[in-house]
Amino acid sequence: MTPRARREALTGFLLILPWGLGFLAFTAGPMAISLGLSLTKWDILTAPQYVGLANFANLWRDPLFWTALRNTLAYTLLTVPLSLAGSLTLALLLNRRVPAVSVFRALFYLPELMPTVATAIIWTWLLNTHFGLLNYLLSRLGLPPVAWLESTTWALPSLVLMGLWTIGGNRMLIFLAGLQGIPEELHEAAALDGASRGRRLWHVTLPLLSPVIFFNLVLGVIASFQVFTPAYIVTNGGPADSTLVYVLYLYRNGFQYFQMGYAAAMAWVMLVLLLAFTWVQFRLMQRWVYYEGGATPG
């Protein structure tokens, strides 16, 4: 290492020191303990017993584990592409210097601000089979009512719908922030060269936005893999486990079925799955994410 490189490394370490301290003080311990607990049978009320890899073997044989995993994957596969596309479109639409655009941004962001209790009540009403607004609108179109939350077919899509309510929320905001960094000159230069709007979007905007798209993709997958609140409050996993998502099943095992060791095993399986996914994304990223800065991404 050259002295310069050493100085750079030292500065880098100093800069990430706050995270290092916080991680060691508050996160590393609990994570390590949960890893340890995944090797035990622990009912919370009495001392944990070491059981080796039995929890993981039991997971493999637990049909509900697979149900939960399948539901979560389905939710993720539906939610992530739809909400990424929706949020990006919305951000492009609202990234204009036109009158009242800031009002529209605020309106689209509102769902993100509603407290969870209110959101849950609003949605159970909207999706009510007999009195909900959604079925009322369907009936006006001459369509039959849908048992949104009572049918094993529609309950999971209903959760996806609830998730899409916030396409104008945080994800859109992040895209909007990303768009601020794209110099207008590039667009104008491209326009002067006669590039069509579609080509400008494809060749200028999206490449420059790719680091942010990458962020929203990775975080979107992590977040939707951990979806919990709507499944917990609105459907409670039902009907017939059709909305039993991964974290809900984990929560039930940990706090309701007195199987915290099993829950910890589930958590670490999830961690490994998400890490693998993220690692693959970071590999693939190098093909499509363009960092204007030229700095080497990790």
């Binding site: 750079e8 991680f23 984990l250 829950a263 670490w268 993220t278």
Partner: peptide
Amino acid sequence: YGFAFFRFPLRNLLFLIVLATLMIPSQVT
């Protein structure tokens, strides 16, 4: 800033650990 602008040993591993803390459900910690 540290992760984006400076090279240091184990940078990628440490960044992966940062991300890993997002991936563990809080129910078990």
